[in-house]
């Protein structure tokens, strides 16, 4: 049932692009306020999708709905070929194991060390001896570029960038197929943010991850994202490569990518 987690060859991926996440006709609202109206979105295997939109347009609502932290009014959400509503409880748990989430503020459990945080999903879902779990936790820490000493620190003792990396390590604990990142580079300095972007690209290439990234960081959008989707007017306004964005005449998209800051990044 689980396919290889490895990246498909690039040419293969271009030919039959397998949708890892597909959202159809999704409507979400609170009371009289409709936040998302008949929204469609697809994320393909092995790509890094950058998701942008003005503040308050519902980027977080969409991500939380896909993760089923918020209820939807109507529409279907298909993750890894499974429609969630039709699954049994066991299948839902099996599906949850294949998703990883990096919350905006890390959401590391403050009472556990970094190592224990990474081991939480392993401990819950797998039956591994402690020494092997310690080793896998050290491997994840190494993969996300943290110093080995960080393993036994508590989240309160970490800097912002280290928290993001530790949270990414926890999101990757069970080698998920699809990773959700909520503003992964916000609050990081430009060098740290660039390193984090590189890290995500590297992990995508080696582990074959599919990445859904909510971001406002123009540098990330230009450097690592394969495709960009813009949320506005309660639906996905446009989606496509960065060239498509630069060519787009929609006013918000135009001012976002071709405004002062956007131009500065293009020139660089």
């Amino acid at each position: 049932m689980v396919q290889s987690v490895l990246k498909k060859q690039p040419d293969q991926a271009a030919e039959h692009r397998e949708a890892v996440l597909s959202v159809r006709d999704l409507t979400v609202g609170f009371g009289d306020n409709i936040v998302l109206d008949r929204l469609d979105l697809e994320v393909y295997r092995g790509e890094i999708l950058g998701f942008v939109g003005a503040s308050g347009t519902g980027k977080s609502v969409l991500m939380r709905t896909v993760l089923r932290l918020l209820p939807k009014r109507s529409g279907t959400i298909e993750i890894l070929g499974n429609e969630y509503d039709r699954l049994s409880l066991r299948e839902r748990i099996a599906l949850d194991m294949r998703l990883g989430v990096l919350f905006q503020h890390g959401a590391l459990f403050s009472a556990l060390t970094v190592r224990e945080n990474i081991q939480v999903p392993m401990r819950e879902y797998l039956d591994l001896p402690q020494d092997l779990m310690d080793e896998f936790a050290r491997l994840k820490i190494e993969l996300v570029g943290l110093a080995p000493e960080a393993a036994d620190k508590y989240p309160a003792e970490l800097s912002g960038g280290m928290i993001k990396r530790a949270a990414l390590a926890r999101a990757l604990a069970l080698d998920p197929d699809l990773v959700f990142l909520d503003e992964p580079t916000s609050g990081l300095d430009p060098i740290g943010a660039a390193e984090f972007d590189e890290l995500i690209a590297k992990l995508r290439d080696t582990l074959g991850l599919t990445v859904y990234m909510v971001t406002h960081d123009l540098d990330s959008l230009f450097t690592v994202c394969d495709r960009i989707a813009v949320l506005g007017q309660k639906r996905v306004l446009v989606s496509g490569t960065i060239e498509d964005m630069l060519a787009c005449e929609e006013p918000w998209v135009k001012s976002y990518f071709r405004g002062k800051r956007g131009r500065a990044v293009v020139r660089a």
């Binding site: 490895l6 050290r138 491997l139 993969l143 080995p148 000493e149």
Partner: peptide, 16 residues
């Protein structure tokens, strides 16, 4: 693909 993944991993894990 598997060879690539194995190659991408580090030579050793330094103990803290």
């Amino acid at each position: 693909r598997y060879v690539e993944l194995v190659r991408a991993l580090p030579d050793g894990l330094p103990l803290p």
